[in-house]
Simulated assay, not measured.
Amino acid sequence: MNELNPLEQAVYDLIPRGIENCRKYKDLHSHIDERSFKKIIRALRLKGKVIGAIRGKQGGYFVATNEEERVIATRQFEAQVKDEMAIVSAMKKAELEEIA
């Protein structure tokens, strides 16, 4: 597994363990703007950290601590990939419009 840089480690340490402890960005950001925070979360995930994000009022970020939480953390990405592949497939099958 890739080592974390100090900023990644600091953000990773902010994220609560377990879905029951999930917390929203505004409660975690520690003076990091939201765009940068999300980039760091992406980098952490690519380095093998299983960080879930639940949408909605009761949602937030969490580090998965068991297989059930891993499934929840990855489900949204699987759905997104499936949706994007459906778009790619439809676009490949579509008739092109000619420019007059």
Rank of each mutant, 00 (worst) to 15 (best):
N66L: 03
R70V: 15
R70K: 14
K93V: 01
V11Y: 01
N5F: 05
Q76A: 15
S30T: 10
A79E: 12
E69P: 03
Q76S: 15
I41M: 02
A79T: 07
A73L: 02
I72Y: 04
E67G: 00
N5W: 04
E34H: 07
V71K: 15
A10W: 07
I51F: 04
K92S: 11
E95T: 09
K49R: 15
R42S: 15
R42W: 08
K47T: 04
A79S: 11
L44Q: 01
T65F: 00
I32D: 00
Q9M: 09
I32Y: 04
I15K: 02
V88L: 15
E95N: 08
E69H: 01
G56P: 05
H29I: 02
R55H: 10
K49T: 05
E97A: 12
V63E: 06
K92H: 08
A43E: 12
P16E: 03
K26C: 07
H31E: 13
M85C: 13
I15W: 01
K39N: 13
E67P: 00
E34Y: 07
R17D: 14
D27H: 13
E68P: 00
T65V: 15
A43W: 01
D83N: 12
Y61G: 04
E8T: 08
G18F: 02
N5M: 07
T74E: 11
K93T: 08
I40W: 03
I19Y: 09
G60F: 01
Y12C: 13
G60Q: 01
E95M: 06
K24M: 09
L44F: 03
E98M: 10
E97R: 09
K57S: 13
H31W: 06
A53H: 15
A53Y: 14
K39F: 07
I99T: 05
E67C: 03
K24G: 09
F37Q: 01
V71Q: 12
N21H: 12
A90M: 09
V88W: 06
M1N: 11
T74N: 10
A79C: 04
Y61R: 02
Q9P: 05
Q80T: 11
S30Y: 14
E98K: 10
I99S: 06
